[in-house]
Simulated scan of single mutants.
Amino acid sequence: MPVPHARRRHAPALALVLLLGGAAACTAPDTDPPPAPAGLTAQAGSATTVHVMWNAAGEHDGVTGYRVFEGDRLVRELPAGTTMVDVTGLAPQTGYSFTVKAEDAAGNLSPAAPAARATTPAAKAEDHRAPTAPAVTTARATGPRSAQVTWSAATDDTAVTAYDVYQSGVRIHTAGPSESTTALSGLQPDTVYTFTVRARDGADNSSPDGPPADVTTPPASGEGPNTAPADFTAAASPGAVTLGWTAPETGRETSEYELYVNGKPTTVIQFGAGAVPGGRAEHRLIVTEPAGTVWAVKLRARLPDGTWGSFSAERRITLVA
């Protein structure tokens, strides 16, 4: 009798092991590849470089990275957050074909995107002269997540081969030498962006920045009014920096602002009771950094609910003695 009793006691545990084992065995591996990247373009930036760009994958696609190919040759592997790359070390006056494949966490590769082709221009010997900067830059929002940037043509002693669009000092797009406008996507709603454009020649000489163009994307559907300080200015004087802006319309006085310098929070500007500016605000900072130091400055307001609002446009200034 003790033996059957022992068997009855262990039978449920055995059944549980079998059940769990069967469940694990029924889990199929992930073999579904993500969709091919869309919007692939290739633009020669110089005699030896081509700028390749594509649209970011949707969050539901599970993409963890991209592989960039020149013909059948793998030239770069990039994380999911990077959707453009300069392919270097190319030959002048040569045609190239590029494609991109997306990869997911299980290692599945998407089909190749339709190939994008570019031909590098001829190399110019001893070309050290940069193009002129585009004299005019304008920008306008075309939706909560998109904008259009337009610029005037630049000149060069050889030829302009590309225009590079920058957002707060970071290149986000490259256009061809005959283009003067481009559409940008993937922006954030209710956000101020500052765009500049540089011209580039076949020897990879870049012009100075053209004039900055600010654009504010509208809030997405269902969101409230824009919360970014408007018309932000920054001016350096000996030992000081003077900031100016128009307060956002939040429904009540805005007395607190957070200042960022070179991408990092630096100080909180507070206006005391009775001193809160009703429209245009101004604040003077005393600085001790040496002359020639470059600052990129922007700020945001404390909203009535206690959270921080959207950032103002960013301004770059050089400190003076």
Results as ranks from 00 to 15, higher is better:
S312E: 03
A220S: 13
P189E: 01
Q270R: 15
A13V: 13
V100H: 04
T137I: 14
N205E: 12
L319S: 11
L20G: 07
A57F: 06
A139P: 06
A275F: 11
T194N: 10
E282W: 00
P277S: 05
L20K: 01
H51W: 12
A123F: 11
Y257M: 04
M53Y: 04
P2W: 11
N55L: 13
D209C: 09
P189K: 02
E59Q: 13
A162M: 04
Q167H: 11
G169F: 12
E70T: 09
L16N: 01
R9I: 14
R315V: 15
N55C: 07
R316A: 14
T132D: 14
T155E: 13
I317H: 12
A113F: 02
A11K: 13
D190K: 10
S146P: 09
T132A: 14
T254Q: 09
A273E: 15
P189F: 00
A228L: 01
A122T: 11
G107T: 08
Y193L: 00
P34D: 03
G306Y: 03
V85F: 13
A57V: 07
V170C: 07
V261Q: 14
A80M: 09
A36G: 05
W308H: 06
E258N: 08
A42L: 03
R7S: 10
R8C: 08
E258H: 06
A321R: 15
G263W: 14
T307K: 13
T266G: 02
S312P: 06
A91S: 14
G89R: 12
T155A: 14
M53K: 11
P131T: 03
A44K: 10
P277M: 02
A13E: 12
L259R: 00
S312H: 04
P189S: 00
A118H: 00
V100Y: 04
R280E: 00
P238I: 10
K264V: 15
L40I: 02
A153C: 06
